[in-house]
Design a protein around this nucleic acid. Structure first.
Lengths: 354, 354
DNA sequence: CATTTTTTGATTTACGTACATCAAAAACTC
DNA sequence: GAGTTTTTGATGTACGTAAATCAAAAAATG
């Protein structure tokens, strides 16, 4: 059975009050007494019952998610997942709130981080922006003892507790390998649709893609990057023009969030049998995958990321260990055949029970 | 703030003791009083604080995992995951135990299920076997109010609470689609290595595979199934013979657990540039994927499955809802480029923090 | 209406921990 | 050794729920 504070008191030959003072770093304990108590804690392998402590303290963990604004379907999906998780989070003593900031706006993000620090939240999860003011704000959060998790987009040397997202270089490389394998001996160049090359994630995906394509047996031209700013209209136009101008185009890699425009252009470009690889399962890419317009979608699971962020922030707030294997976000490859059924359909494969 | 039993008592105009009787279905409450209390519960949106209740009851959830014996690497990995989860499960008031039975032995499995029922465990997770005595044992568990989860291999019409695993027909279809795409125009037949066609899962994977291959533009012969009984030596022999006899072999689909023998035969068959698709990431398939002997591995995450089983059984025991999206096990496609790093290496991609 | 039975309420104890209070004991200082 | 300060212990209350006990109240019965 699990040791309790009573066992520590007995083992160390002190009172409950002294045990409490040691466990909770309260003043008024001599060093020699403290040592006795700490030895007893180790001997007994005592682990605090966090649920009991939370009950005693009526504790609630306010967590804030800071996400970019805009109509990026992946980010909107991420927001939906946070809101969905927040709907019944009080049962788990967690209070989720979502704050949005203009996409790529480092100073707005830094301001929201400071605002969250001011409110003394239990943890912060944010989609990072590569800016010095964000770096400094993360530092301040950590100094205030607030756990910080970067989500989807990391920030190196920021002191954040954990990054929850995929390795973008590996993502690009995976796209390149698949593209090469799917195209096989078929000749023709490949186009790349990005949001903006100023975004580090997009740069990394391109880097990985180029590396993998260049390792393929068949040498193949990669056209200059089309920067669609993740805007559906602009992306549509760029791809439509590319389809019109490049008669022997073999494939398209969409590494950003301009997929709505891409899918529209593909649907309009009748009879072009291209190999298309995109990122993130959204309504558009799901339909395109099922309809055969897109060959593979590389995905990171927004639901898993949100749950992971909550778990990590909770664990850090409680001073508990994080299960690394559970919190590692995998880069998923979906083709038509292994695409999970639509969210909202609750049937388990082979479902025959309650 | 969350309503408590005190709020219910006040709202219904009764005492705490009466609220307790209604909440816990204890005798001694008139129908009219019960209705008042139940109305108050609904009005207030009261949800039991399970952590507080567990503390009051000193509750521990004993859960049992019944797994097949043998040197099937996936099943041994599954067992490792259960044992790893069990190492610190008492903190979460869960007590995991593992019981192994001879593989495919329905009566041994039924006996262990009944033994677990006898011990009044809080939940049972088992790799199912298609046998009437197993079906009956699951029924008995459910009648005893013990939640039951089938793991990896389902059993239709068994009344189990949940299946945790992948859709094997979709798995086979995925393998077929990938094989077809990777082979492209390249001519030559494809071999299939199975454990035993008596196993329903293996039959389903083959079914899916054949369906996908027949939908490919290039018509291709599928050789008669090689049944290696998931035995490394037999599998090695069958594949080695196949390599020797079929000079124009284009690909191999390994749908069972004979991958150790397969990889050995591939490594010995120098210069054969085959497209190979296997199931489950194990030490052998990981090395083969990284070394280029295998082109893709279709995987189900054992760690996720174990955590999911625990969560589902806990939720069922508490009468709480299961988050369908979290508990859906995805069929993962791994190529060399998106293979997660080795377990035991705890680094997060882009890791720059604590 | 009297008697019996059932229901209800008040209360206590328990779980493990947090936190506060104050008197008594121990340690420290001169 | 006396006076002061610090440490320690005993105790109580709190969190939300479970569960038991028994007297009082309400309901049912004849």
């Amino acid at each position: 059975m699990r040791p309790t504070v009573h066992d520590i008191a007995e083992r160390a030959g002190v009172s409950l009050a002294t045990v409490d003072r040691v466990l909770n770093d309260r003043p008024g304990v001599r060093g020699v007494t403290r040592a006795k108590v700490e030895a007893a804690i180790v001997d007994l392998g005592y682990v605090r019952d966090v649920a009991a402590a939370n009950l005693a303290k009526s504790r609630v963990y306010p967590l804030v998610f800071i996400l970019p604004e805009g109509d990026n379907p992946f980010m909107r999906g991420l927001e939906d997942e946070v809101r969905r998780a927040g709907a019944h989070s009080l049962v788990e003593r967690t209070q989720l709130s979502v704050v949005t900031v203009p996409a790529f706006d480092g100073s707005a993000l830094a301001r929201e981080i400071d605002s969250a620090i001011e409110r003394a939240v239990a943890g912060i999860a944010a989609v990072a922006v590569d800016a010095p003011e964000v770096l400094a704000a993360i530092g301040r959060a950590r100094e205030a003892g607030i756990p910080f998790v970067t989500l989807v987009s990391d920030l190196a040397n920021s002191g954040r507790d954990h990054f929850i997202g995929v390795d973008n270089i590996a993502a690009g490389r995976t796209a390149g390998s698949l593209m090469g394998r799917f195209l096989g001996q078929r000749p023709g160049p490949v186009a790349v649709l990005a949001g903006s090359m100023r975004v580090r994630d997009h740069g990394e995906r391109l880097e990985g893609f180029l590396a993998a394509m260049s390792a393929m047996p068949v040498s193949r031209a990669i056209l200059p990057v089309l920067e669609g700013q993740d805007d559906p209209e602009l992306s549509f136009r760029l791809i439509a023009e590319c389809l019109a101008e490049v008669r022997d185009l073999a494939g398209i890699y969409s590494l950003g969030a301009g997929n709505r425009g891409l899918v529209r252009a593909l649907a309009a470009g009748t009879g072009r049998n291209l190999c298309v690889i995109a990122h993130e399962v959204t309504d558009e890419t799901r339909a395109a995958l099922e309809g055969g317009l897109v060959d593979a979608v590389l995905n990171q699971d927004a639901g898993h990321e949100v749950r992971s962020a909550i778990r990590v922030l909770r664990a850090k707030a409680d001073g508990l260990p994080v299960i690394a294997a559970q919190e590692r976000i995998r880069l998923e490859i979906f083709i038509k055949d292994n695409l999970p059924s639509e969210p909202g359909m609750d049937d388990t494969p082979g479902s025959a029970g309650n």
